[in-house]
Design a protein around this nucleic acid. Structure first.
Lengths: 119, 119
DNA sequence: CATCGATATTGACAGATGTCGATGTCATGG
DNA sequence: CCATGACATCGACATCTGTCAATATCGATG
C-alpha cells in the first residue's frame, strides 16, 4: 500500500536518513536528498519559504508573495511549484486565492540531516 | 580590519542570521545564504561532505575520495573546490597528498538556519 | 453567460552547472 | 635533473535552471 520510492516527494524520501556527518551517504540516499536541498538552493525560494513560514497564521497568499519580489508572476508561481513539489510547501486553494504553508516537519528533517542534532 | 562582505566565504556570511522560519529573510541575506545551500545541492557533493565528515580522524585524502565515485578525477576535484570555496571543507596539503576536513561550525550554522533550534 | 481577476502553464531563451579529456603544477624518488 | 604520481586547471560540451511574455484555467460577480 505504500507508495513506491519514485512516487515519494523529496521530503518523504529524506525523513528516514541518519545525519550526513554520522556515516557516509549511499549514492541512493544522496540522490534522494539532493532534490530537497536543490529546492532551497535559490535566493528567491529561500525568501519565499521564509516569508510563508514567518507569516501570520503560518500561511501566505500568492498575492502577498508576488508583491514581495521584483519578479514576474509566472516566475514566482514557478518557484512556488518547485517548493511544493519538493514537499516543503503545502498548497490550498480557497476561492480565488491560493495559500501556501510550510511543511514544518520537512525543514526539521532537513535540518537534522545536516546538523545531526537528532538521533 | 574586517573583510568586506564580498570577501566572506558563504559560510562566514551566514553565521549571523536568524532562522529562516522566524522572520522573513531580506533579499541580501537570501543572496548570501543561497550559495552555501547550492554548495550541498548536489548528490556528489553531499556524499563527499558525508564521507569526509564521517571518515576516521575527521579528514580524508583526495585519493580516497576519487575511488568512492565512478567519476573522473577532475570532476571530483571540481566538486571539492566548490565545497572548499563555500567554506564547508578545509584543505591541507601534506607532501603529495591533499586532505580535506569539514568545517564543523559551518554545517551547524546552516542546520540552525533551517531548523531554528538555535536562538 | 460575459467578464474580470488570481493563479498556473507553455514556449523560448540566456546563462549556470556537471562532466570529461587534455594539460599544467608540484613534490618525491631514482 | 628527469620521471612519476597526486592533484588542479583549462576548454569544450550537453544539460539544467531562472526568467519572461503570452496564454490558459478557473472562481466570482454582474
Amino acid at each position: 500500500m505504500s507508495k513506491s520510492l519514485l512516487q515519494l516527494t523529496p521530503v518523504e524520501a529524506v525523513a528516514c536518513c541518519s545525519p550526513v556527518t554520522r556515516e557516509p551517504l549511499t549514492a541512493d540516499a544522496a540522490e534522494r536528498i539532493a532534490p530537497l536541498v536543490k529546492a532551497i538552493a535559490d535566493p528567491v525560494r529561500l525568501r519565499l519559504l521564509s516569508i510563508v513560514a514567518s507569516h501570520a497564521d503560518g500561511e501566505a497568499c500568492v498575492c502577498d508573495l508576488n508583491d514581495a519580489f521584483d519578479l514576474s508572476q509566472p516566475t514566482i508561481s514557478h518557484h512556488l511549484k518547485l517548493l511544493h513539489e519538493a514537499g516543503l510547501l503545502e498548497r490550498e486553494k480557497r476561492g480565488v486565492w491560493v495559500y501556501y504553508r510550510v511543511n514544518a516537519a520537512a525543514l526539521g528533517d532537513l535540518s537534522a540531516l545536516l546538523g545531526g542534532v537528532g538521533a
